[in-house]
Amino acid sequence: MTLDPITLTVIQSGLQQVCDEMDLSFSRAAFSPVIAEANDRSDGIYSAEDGSLIAQGSQGLPVFVGVMQYSTATLIRMIEEGKVVAPKPGDIYIVNDPYLGGTHLMDVRFAMPVWRNGETLELELTPKRTDEPLPEGGYHTVYRIGIVGGLAFEPATSMVGPVEAFTGGVERTWSIITGSLSGLWNMVIGNISSCNLSGPIGIAQTSGAMASQGGQSFITFIAVLSTAVGLLNLFPVPVLDGGHLVFHAWEAVSGKPPSDRALNVLMSIGLILILSLMTFALTNDLFCP
């Protein structure tokens, strides 16, 4: 079978990510610091035909990955010869015989068969257009299929004082506001796709994705969403708080509030604008790739 470089890279990165996640789970579940901190272990994916190595984790000791393929090859041969019971879904083989591909008696190898019952699966990927901001300003368009790498370690964190936390919060809020305004303006003038405007379905999907990544990612997303919604609410559109501020400003300048007729007309226009925006965002959720 011949694969083009892009397909090969996608498959290779996916298998590498699986191994890295096994590495991380192994390390977190370990009671011994020899395994959890010294990385005295390894993980890999091996061929069901001859036990040869297909992919390995980026953490751990490579020597174990190298010898594990001999354990896997021996296990496959013993299953074919009937010396070992054939696996069923969910079965895991445990091997600690150094003559079957180990380094010493303390080594324990786990092998879990994975198969698709001989069925060939065809997956179709549709790249999604993403307009990403540039450090120097502006945007550039890229197409992504949604596969990203994860961290094989926990990022270091540190406590900050109230002054530094307040300053950082103000800077982050200002960054969200300027980024939101820049994105809206570039959508209006056509520099970026209007599909960047998401509705309730897109927000719910993103919220679920952030929640699956942990509490910190979810809280950060809620903060960004709240800031963006608060900014939208301050737009000078009737029925929004920004529209009411405009009415109060008019009353302060003219000395009298707008007439009831003018208020009714402006409120109706504002409501139509908001409903149109919501319909447009919902359409993006349903039809944008």
Rank of each mutant, 00 (worst) to 15 (best):
T2L: 03
D4K: 12
I6H: 13
T9P: 02
V10F: 08
L15C: 04
C19P: 01
M22C: 13
D23R: 00
L24H: 04
S25W: 09
A30R: 01
P33C: 03
A38I: 09
N39Q: 08
D43L: 07
D50L: 12
S52C: 12
A55V: 08
L61K: 13
T72E: 05
T72L: 10
A73W: 03
T74V: 11
E81S: 08
V84E: 10
A86C: 11
P89F: 02
G90C: 10
G90R: 04
G90H: 02
D91Q: 07
Y93S: 00
N96C: 14
P98G: 00
L100V: 08
L105T: 10
L105P: 08
R109C: 12
F110I: 09
N117K: 12
E122W: 06
L123T: 11
L125A: 10
T126Y: 11
D131P: 01
E136P: 02
G137L: 09
G138C: 06
G138V: 01
H140V: 04
T141H: 07
V142G: 05
Y143F: 02
R144G: 08
R144T: 10
G146C: 01
G149E: 10
A152F: 09
E154T: 14
V163M: 13
V163L: 15
T167C: 09
T167Q: 15
G169A: 03
V170L: 15
R172V: 11
W174G: 07
I177L: 11
L184Q: 11
W185E: 14
M187F: 02
I192L: 04
C195K: 13
S198C: 08
G199P: 07
G199L: 05
P200C: 00
I201K: 09
T206E: 07
S212H: 10
S212R: 14
S212A: 15
Q213K: 14
Q216S: 12
I219G: 02
G230R: 07
L234K: 12
P236I: 05
P236E: 07
V237Q: 00
P238E: 08
G242W: 11
E251R: 10
E251H: 08
V253N: 01
S254T: 09
K256Y: 02
P257I: 03
R261N: 10
V265T: 03
I269E: 00
I269P: 00
I272N: 02
I274F: 14
L275P: 05
L277E: 01
T283A: 15
N284H: 11
L286F: 14
L286V: 15
